[in-house]
Amino acid sequence: MLANYGYIDGSGSYFISIDTDKCDGCGNCVTVCPSGIFEVLDEDPNDPLRDGPVAAVVGDKKKKLKYECGPCKPVNGTPKLACIEACKAGAISHSW
């Protein structure tokens, strides 16, 4: 399942997508994210019949991604993002 966390508002579209078929719940993203955006849940709240842990975006951060992710995205050229680098399964992507 492709879980898209985030929002669209007047200023743009801000989504972090987690491919739950690839995610094994290792938690590397949780460790590296300076803004504490990720968490690992024991079961997938959007897929009650799936087994095993899965990463998700923390509830109240979903509505602030543009701001929470700001420190990793300076306007003068975005370097490689820590969360994407840390995810060996390649389950994480950003829309902006």
Partner: peptide, 14 residues
């Protein structure tokens, strides 16, 4: 009826 892809916008009232 199993979800394969989703998004939810609850940040903005528009």
């Amino acid at each position: 009826g199993k979800v394969t892809n989703f998004l939810m916008n609850d940040k903005c009232a528009a």
